[in-house]
């Protein structure tokens, strides 16, 4: 069951009318290393992962949904007042032809989201290593988006999202350490 809080995890402000930025940001919406893929990956893997780390996958999955909302808000704000001409000029003509200004789960190149982006191997180490890699790739995507964007407010939100990937990666690495630990052996951190 979900409880929904009607606010964003971190404020999203957009200072410039730049629909082309939306085209790039959509990578983190429906791309292979985007927030949708992250949320669904962890929410699904949690069923078969050892109990000790189920809570971690659950919590991070929920947070990824909050990030998805932030990205959606940015894309929406950047495109909502764009004319068809501006959409075309921003490279969003193909998007407009199919979706008008509606958001859609595809990557920056327009490739629709697919479940093949995510895996559930059933082996906890294999799954957690995939999760660590996913976090590093998402962190890298945010870096390249920050590099291309000159909107200071968007960059502020993107830096927040990038930092969250750093924290998630550490948590998944800790999960591996917890599962590596010999049972019954006490160790203090």
């Amino acid at each position: 069951m979900f409880y929904y809080e009607k606010k964003l995890q971190y404020p999203v402000r957009v200072s410039t009318c730049n629909p082309m930025l939306a085209k790039f940001l959509i990578e983190q919406y429906g791309g292979a290393d985007g927030e949708l893929a992250a949320a669904l990956r962890y929410m699904n893997q949690r069923y078969t992962i050892p109990d000790k780390v189920i809570g971690l996958l659950n919590d991070i999955a929920m947070e990824e949904f909050s990030h998805l909302e932030m990205i959606a808000t940015m894309v929406y704000k950047l495109t909502k007042d764009a004319t068809p001409e501006m959409m075309k000029a921003a490279g969003l003509g193909d998007h407009y032809a199919d979706h008008d200004k509606a958001l859609y789960y595809h990557n920056a190149a327009g490739v629709p989201w697919t479940a093949t982006y995510i895996q559930a191997k059933g082996d906890p180490i294999a799954d957690l290593y995939e999760d660590i890699a996913a976090e590093e790739k998402a962190r890298a995507t945010y870096q390249w988006l920050i590099d291309m964007s000159d909107d200071p407010d968007i960059n502020d939100s993107l830096r927040f999202l990038r930092e969250r990937e750093v924290v998630h990666s550490l948590r998944f690495r800790e999960a591996v350490e917890i599962l590596k630990e010999d049972q019954g052996k006490k160790k203090f951190y």
Binding site: Y10, Y142, Q143, I146, D147, R159, F160, L161, R162, E163, R164, V166, V167, L170
Partner: peptide
């Protein structure tokens, strides 16, 4: 900063 701990903070660029 996106984290509770200064030691975990990663600036970019």
């Amino acid at each position: 900063h996106g984290t509770l701990w200064p030691q975990l903070y990663s600036p970019y660029p």
